[in-house]
Simulated assay, not measured.
Amino acid sequence: MLPYLPLKVSFADMGGIESIRKTVTAQMEEGFKAGIFKAPDLTGIIKERVQIPTRDGASLGGVVYRPESGVKGPLLVFYHGGGFVSGFPETFEPEAELLTKELGVTVLGVAYRVAPENIFPTAVNDAVDSLKWQPLGADPSKGFIVAGSSAGGNLAAGAARNSIDSNLSPPLTGVFLNVPLLVHPTAVPEKFKPHYNSEEEFKDGMILDRRGMQDSSLIVADAYQWDPTSKEASPLLWPKGSKPHPPTYIQVCGADPLRDDGLIYESILREEGVPTRLDVYPGLPHGSLNFMPMLSQSKKALVDVKDGVQWILNQKA
Rank of each mutant, 00 (worst) to 15 (best):
H80T: 05
V85H: 05
L76Y: 08
L76N: 11
E90F: 13
L76S: 01
P74I: 11
S86N: 12
G83R: 11
H80Q: 01
E93T: 07
F84M: 12
V64S: 01
G73Y: 02
Y65T: 10
G87S: 03
E68Y: 14
E68A: 15
P74R: 00
F88N: 03
F88C: 11
G87N: 02
E68W: 01
E90S: 15
S69P: 06
E90G: 13
G83V: 00
F88R: 06
G62M: 07
V64R: 09
Y79K: 09
S69I: 12
L75K: 05
F78G: 10
V63W: 05
F78D: 10
L75D: 07
Y65G: 01
L75H: 00
P74A: 06
H80P: 00
R66S: 05
P74L: 11
G87F: 07
L76C: 12
V85W: 04
G82W: 02
E93L: 02
G87C: 06
V63M: 11
P74H: 06
V64M: 02
G73N: 04
E68G: 15
V85F: 03
Y65W: 14
G83Y: 00
F92A: 12
F84H: 07
P67D: 13
E93A: 07
L76G: 06
E93N: 05
G83S: 08
S86A: 10
G70P: 14
G87R: 00
P67S: 15
R66C: 09
Y65E: 04
R66H: 13
G83T: 01
G81S: 11
G87V: 04
E68R: 14
V63S: 01
G62Y: 00
G73C: 02
V64E: 10
L76E: 03
G82V: 07
E90L: 13
